[in-house]
């Protein structure tokens, strides 16, 4: 069919030779005008219905996606900044707490030291006083004993005097003896 068409067109071309270029042959104009319009509008409709909306949709989607991402990144950055500030505040607070605790512990330790010192002092004082009292008592007791001994001695002396009716010399000698004894016993005590 196509070969026949070419053959007939070739014959027609020879007939219409005077028009020069095949493009100037007006016999085929009408159908080409018609089909140019039809083809153009079919392509226009097809592209408008199936292609352009798809491209627009995807471009818009990408644009909004990118805007979203930028917004999200911005929000993330702000959140991070807020967290950092928060953390910084917590850090400062913790540092202050630690300092306070240190101070308290130091004060506690000082107070405890003071208290222990005081208690020790009191104990020592008490012990010293007890010792002093004891010494006093011992001294008193010793004096008491000495007095008792002296009294006994005097009693013995008086007894002897009475028994023997001793002479003066004897008497003075005996007193002297007694005194010496007393002195000795006193020396023993001290």
């Amino acid at each position: 069919m196509i070969t026949e068409a070419y053959a007939s067109a070739g014959a027609a071309g020879k007939e219409a030779a005077a028009s020069g270029l095949p493009q100037f042959e007006s016999s085929v104009f009408a159908s080409q005008i018609f089909w140019t319009f039809v083809s153009f509008f079919i392509l226009l409709m097809l592209l408008r219905k199936y292609v352009l909306p798809a491209i627009e949709t995807i471009l818009d989607a990408r644009a909004s996606r990118i805007a979203d991402e930028i917004q999200k990144a911005e929000a993330g950055r702000k959140e991070a900044e807020r967290l950092q500030a928060n953390f910084q505040g917590q850090l400062v607070a913790a540092r202050q707490t630690a300092a306070k605790m240190m101070e308290e512990a130091r004060l506690d330790a000082a107070r405890m030291k003071e208290q222990a010192h005081e208690e020790l002092q009191q104990e020592l004082t008490k012990k010293k006083n007890a010792a002093l009292v004891e010494i006093e008592q011992a001294k008193h007791k010793a004096m008491e004993e000495v007095r008792t001994v002296a009294v006994e001695l005097s009693m013995q002396v008086a007894e002897k005097l009475i028994v023997k009716s001793m002479s003066d010399e004897d008497a003075s000698r005996m007193v002297q003896e007694a005194l010496t004894n007393l002195g000795e016993s006193q020396a023993q005590l001290h």
Binding site: A17, A18, S19, G20, L21, F24
Partner: peptide
């Protein structure tokens, strides 16, 4: 030139 070609001959 093509137009002239058509007119000539």
């Amino acid at each position: 030139a093509f137009i002239i070609m058509g007119k000539g001959g």
